[in-house]
């Protein structure tokens, strides 16, 4: 029941995002969208993912999008042409994806391939091998330590990239202001 309500709200939010031209409202609605997805993740028992979605999707990225808005325009340009071709492409892609889900194992099916690979080992042995009560943490930090190291490297690289693109100007601008005040 809650699933259906949340999914309905998700769809409505997505439609509103597409229809609205005022970008401030769009940014706020994307935050709402992330928060609703976080609720869905909780219902799917993926609390760690929900936590990240709520903190990153609804929190930080909303603020960053607002910062971007402050740098650019606050209204979206009205497209000149009717979006018929994009609509058809989206419909066909969506139909193909839906068709693909027909072959997928049912949600929570213990015989699904993903539950028969390494997951049984994690569930049975992580208590004795790692000894951390939260299996998600033991998978992320210990069994899949290389992946997590890679993820942190990606985040670090993103920070470096932002600094190279946008950083440094703050100091220069302040210097400019100072010289203007002096002059």
């Amino acid at each position: 029941m809650i699933n259906i309500v949340l999914l309905t709200f998700l769809a409505l939010t997505a439609l509103a995002i597409v229809r609205l031209r005022h970008l401030f409202a769009v940014v706020m609605l994307t935050g709402v969208y992330s928060l609703l997805s976080a609720g869905l993740f909780v219902l799917l028992d993926a609390v760690d993912v929900a936590f990240t979605e709520a903190a990153v999707g609804a929190g930080i990225s909303t603020v960053l999008m607002l910062g971007t808005l402050a740098l650019t325009s606050r209204r979206e340009k009205v497209p000149g042409r009717t979006p018929l071709l994009p609509l058809i492409v989206v419909m066909i892609t969506g139909a193909a994806l839906l068709y693909g889900t027909l072959d997928m194992p049912r949600f929570g099916d213990p015989d699904a391939p993903i539950h028969r690979h390494v997951a049984p080992r994690y569930i049975q042995k992580s208590g004795t091998e790692v000894g951390v009560p939260n299996i998600v943490t033991s998978v992320l930090a210990s069994y899949r330590g290389f992946d997590t190291l890679g993820e942190v490297t990606v985040i670090f690289t993103a920070g470096i990239g932002i600094l190279l693109l946008l950083g440094g100007t703050g100091g220069r601008r302040r210097k400019d202001e100072e010289t203007e005040e002096e002059g």
Binding site: L64, G159, L166, G170
Partner: peptide, 11 residues
């Protein structure tokens, strides 16, 4: 850092 970089540029 990302927030400072974005916010530092806005008018």
């Amino acid at each position: 850092t990302i927030f400072f970089a974005f916010a530092g540029r806005s008018a």
